[in-house]
Deep mutational scan, measured.
Amino acid sequence: SSQSQGISSSSTSTMPNSSQSSHSSSGTLSSLETVSTQELYSIPEDQEPEDQEPEEPTPAPWARLWALQDGFANLECVNDNYWFGRDKSCEYCFDEPLLKRTDKYRTYSKKHFRIFREVGPKNSYIAYIEDHSGNGTFVNTELVGKGKRRPLNNNSEIALSLSRNKVFVFFDLTVDDQSVYPKALRDEYIMSKTLGSGACGEVKLAFERKTCKKVAIKIISKRKFAIGSAREADPALNVETEIEILKKLNHPCIIKIKNFFDAEDYYIVLELMEGGELFDKVVGNKRLKEATCKLYFYQMLLAVQYLHENGIIHRDLKPENVLLSSQEEDCLIKITDFGHSKILGETSLMRTLCGTPTYLAPEVLVSVGTAGYNRAVDCWSLGVILFICLSGYPPFSEHRTQVSLKDQITSGKYNFIPEVWAEVSEKALDLVKKLLVVDPKARFTTEEALRHPWLQDEDMKRKFQDLLSEENESTALPQVLAQPSTSRKRPREGEAEGAETTKRPAVCAAVL
């Protein structure tokens, strides 16, 4: 046999249950609850290399294929790409003598399909299967379609040439079993990697079954959420508030809700932002270029202005709740996480202390139980975000031990490091100062900020419009641009040419 590394010779191994799959997660993409704000000051410096380099560890398999027929071997997927077919160049070659004697062998292509993985959001991997055969590759009886790919989820059954000719079961060793999710959700989405997690739940990458488009699904544990919100009269209202707010909003710089499922837990389906959180971008770069800050901040102002015009105060604006559309420097941003939002009543007064301390406005800290506050709290938070983006460190921090965090904020005395700000323009610093004003009545509004000289930049605004146009074009394009080929190089076993392929839609398939 010419099988590559990772293939075992026996096809009769006992199949494990899916609970053996491991679970991976990374930083929070968007969480309903406010958790302790991640610290920006503690960015690790590059460490000196050791005298002796450690040995390379043996790579762990990321997936496993269990053979369902004699003549096929099990495969431990270690590499990122595997070709399957009769050709000797394939990493998994159909060359077992037992297999060659079967009637089905002649229906398999020289290069029938490939399984591979690509880097997705949060640097996690996504597994795909890609059909290159004349007679078809099927996943859970659905045709992939020649020249098309679809994501592979845990426990997928792979069939060759005929939908009933099941050859492998695919085990993704990095994700959960699909069966743990409600059927209504599974009918519409293929669940994938964990993108982030918080005290009350997690955010998962998923794929729409009909279109193969990526989405983010925010899962909120009702049990954990009820415990964490025990002081509230009705904890469920917080989730329902977020859903109702998101459904009503329609702005290019605000995250869109696509679906909602109320089962044992809450499942909020949101558009996916491939670039992750602004927080991670700031930490990764230490600070952002001023031109990049301007492009992002302009969009934040437009989003918050839209919220305020619609009578909504976000109340928890922070870099973790600003998501980026891509890994590119120039990209769209979207505001997310409306769990603490407040729809303005007639009095415009709110007395609930919520939000993240580092970003809270002075009037929030001094008015607990005594007075109210209004939309100006969001403008203060925007000032803190702009400060961080321009400088790479927070204006107020618990680690300045000589003054408490509350006193720093209520006095408006931010930590100004001259040598850092020497590289920032006077106009940018002036806008920061106009937003970090203790008196909410004297603080800049979103309208005033948008009129500030720093943002009178036609090149930046043109760039934003171009990015918007690109997004609109990409969302308007159909996901499947061509029909699967019906040509046949070899006959199917026991049926006429093209008899099955043309009847089945290529579900969740995307043209390369």
Results as ranks from 00 to 15, higher is better:
I243R: 05
L249P: 05
L249H: 11
L249V: 05
H251W: 11
P252G: 01
I254A: 06
K256V: 07
I257W: 07
K258A: 12
K258M: 14
N259Y: 11
F260H: 13
A263I: 02
A263V: 08
Y266R: 15
I268M: 13
I268R: 02
L270V: 15
L270T: 10
L272M: 12
E277I: 02
L278S: 01
L278G: 01
D280L: 14
V283D: 01
V283N: 05
G284Q: 11
L288G: 12
K289I: 13
K289D: 05
E290Q: 10
C293A: 06
Y296G: 01
Y298L: 06
Q299R: 05
Q299N: 11
Q305D: 05
Y306L: 04
H308Q: 15
N310T: 10
G311N: 02
G311Y: 10
H314P: 03
K318S: 02
P319L: 12
N321K: 02
S325A: 08
S326E: 07
S326A: 11
D330W: 12
C331R: 11
C331Y: 12
L332R: 06
I333D: 01
K334M: 12
K334W: 02
I335M: 14
D337S: 00
H340W: 12
S341G: 14
K342L: 03
I343P: 08
S348E: 09
L349I: 08
L349M: 12
M350F: 12
R351G: 13
T352H: 00
L353Q: 09
C354M: 01
L360A: 14
P362H: 03
V364N: 00
T370F: 12
G372D: 15
N374I: 04
N374W: 04
N374V: 03
N374C: 11
V377C: 07
V377P: 00
C379S: 12
F387V: 04
L390P: 03
L390I: 10
F396G: 03
R400N: 15
V403I: 12
D407E: 12
G412V: 06
N415D: 11
F416I: 04
I417A: 00
W421V: 03
V424A: 10
S425D: 07
D430G: 15
K434M: 12
K434G: 13
L436V: 08
F444Q: 05
T445R: 00
T446H: 08
A449R: 06
P453C: 14
L455V: 12
L455F: 12
S469I: 08
E470T: 14
E471I: 13
S474G: 00
A476R: 10
L477A: 11
P478R: 03
T486N: 13
E495D: 15
E497Y: 04
A499V: 11
T502S: 05
R504K: 05
R504W: 12
V507K: 09
A509Q: 09
